[in-house]
Write a protein that binds this DNA or RNA. Structure first.
Length: 458
RNA sequence: GGCGACGUGGCCGAGUGGUUUAGGCAGGGGCCUGCAAAGCCCCGUACCCGGGUUCGAAUCCCGGCGUCGCCUCCA
């Protein structure tokens, strides 16, 4: 069984499931007001890998991840560009899924949109007000965090410290700086939903509680997201559920930062790199490889160099796939119980992954196996290679990493040159064949000699 | 100010109280090749500094230095 770090306890401990054999997980998704950035790419990859590992282990997984389609930033953007909030959200949600596809991230089983759950949020806020766990001010409804058992659990810091550091804001109607908005009363021109406590819109922390409990039920197994969501977002989600006496997530997982040039990538620093831009320039698999190469809780450095490094690593994987004509399965892989693969390799792989997702070691294993497979092929040990090759591809696929053995489209002119080179080589006219090779390489082709003659790829 | 993480060979990046190595990239040598490419084999002998614990520490403890982060919108 998977041992996974739990942010609530600060320890690596077993992921204890509510229902045997079934995993329910909720991962906080994006607010769609701009193009996805590298941080989005990392958290989706990390939790995609976790999801795939649970599936590979033979578990049935329900994966829910939301789209926040109403929020201050969406409103600001819509106002600035003179269009509707829903148009802004639709545009950037489309960009989101496009990026997810390029990263080979599996679609969530449930994709709740905040605007579809406002009624449920209103009901929850009304209940909190009824039970005097929340209070109304002139600009909204706030949760009274002093009544929440164990508030500060996820922050991992004393409440005094949190209070001392809390942002100073003009709102002196709040009873504590830690109290947060459940509902924001409408200002002129803003989108508005009806509510008995004043028309307006939900606060950010409210949607995920309502949607996760609605879709996955009380005491669902795992709640995840980027490290920055730990506090205050996840703390505040939990606070609402706990205040109402509902069992919330049993286990919390958070992934580490994306660093750019040694600094955390963040809004305030303005050093954002859009995922869309990266994917336009680089193989989406390279970013996955980069993410897998570090432990999910460690920071990763994304630069042109580290991406290029990953792309060269990918070439080694693809080279084996081409050599054996192997292709990756389309959907998620179930390793558990697959006796066509090398059993020792699968056991080692699962053991690494079960130990708090040690993807760096799992990936190291895959690369070791690539070497072993090539050796077997070099030694004409077809039996061994025919087990190891598919094992390599299956383990890579279990982490969501596909192989690319595709033959590049070659235009007729280039094909003719390759043919001419083969003729020259047959006639031992090496001056001519090398001349053609130089020409092909200058055009961007990698030229390899095979028993079938000149082979070309990009 | 209050918390916390990290510092590994040219680069990225794991790991661990003591046998034999993470892995990748780059580099060197060899095999293969007409020459290459791809592939295979071999190679560097690393663990911020100073103390301490120990038979033995890069791994544990203390101190220092450095980097980064959280306490505020953020994945």
């Amino acid at each position: 069984m998977l041992q996974l770090h739990d942010t609530a306890t600060g320890e690596v401990r077993p992921l204890e499931l509510r229902d045997e054999g079934r995993v329910s997980m909720y991962v906080c998704g994006p607010t769609v007001y701009d193009l996805p950035h590298l941080g989005h790419g990392r958290f989706t990859l990390v939790f995609d890998v976790l999801r795939r590992h649970l599936i590979a282990s033979g578990l049935a997984v329900t994966y829910a991840s939301n789209i926040t389609d109403i929020d201050d930033k969406i409103i600001e953007k819509a106002a600035a560009e003179g269009r509707s909030e829903s148009a802004v959200a639709a545009e950037f949600e489309a960009a989101w899924w496009e990026a997810m596809d390029r990263l080979n991230v599996l679609r969530p089983d449930e994709i709740p949109h905040a605007t579809a759950f406002v009624g449920d949020m209103v009901a929850m806020i009304a209940e909190l007000l009824d039970r005097r766990l929340a209070y109304a001010t002139s600009d909204g409804v706030y949760l009274d965090t002093s009544q929440v058992d164990g508030y500060g659990l996820l922050a991992g810091q004393p409440l005094d410290s949190l209070r001392a550091g809390a942002r100073v804001e003009g709102n002196d109607e709040k009873r504590s700086p830690l109290d947060f908005a459940l509902w924001k009363t409408a200002k002129p021109g803003e989108p508005v939903w009806p509510a008995p406590f004043g028309d307006g819109r939900p606060g950010w922390h409210t949607e995920c509680v309502v949607m996760s409990l609605d879709l996955l039920g009380e005491g669902f197994d795992l709640h995840g997201g980027g490290l920055d969501l730990k506090f205050p977002h996840h703390e505040n989600e939990r606070a609402q559920a706990v205040a109402l006496g509902r069992r919330f997530a049993r286990h919390w997982a958070h992934n580490g930062w994306v660093m750019v040039e040694g600094e955390k990538m963040s809004k305030s620093l303005g050093n954002f790199t859009s995922l869309t831009d990266l994917l336009a320039k680089a193989d989406g698999r390279a970013y996955r490889l980069l993410v897998l190469r570090s432990h999910y809780r460690a920071p990763i450095e994304v630069t042109a160099d580290t991406i290029a490094d990953a792309e060269r690593g990918l070439a080694r994987l693809d080279s084996l796939a081409r050599r054996m004509e192997l292709t990756s399965p389309v959907g998620p892989v179930v390793l558990h119980g697959d006796d066509t693969l090398d059993p020792s390799a699968v056991d080692r792989y699962l053991a690494f992954m079960d130990d708090d997702l040690q993807t760096p070691q799992a990936l190291g294993l895959v690369f070791e196996l690539i070497g072993e497979t090539n050796s077997a092929l070099d030694a004409d040990d077809a039996d061994r290679a025919s087990v190891l090759g598919p094992t390599v591809v299956a383990l890579a696929a279990a982490m969501g990493l596909t192989v690319d053995a595709a033959i590049d489209e070659i235009d007729d002119e280039t094909l003719a040159l390759a043919g001419e080179r083969d003729t020259a080589r047959a006639e031992k006219d090496f001056a001519r064949s090398d001349e053609i090779r130089d020409q092909l390489q200058a055009a961007g082709w990698v030229v390899e000699d095979t028993p079938e003659g000149t082979a070309l790829r990009r």
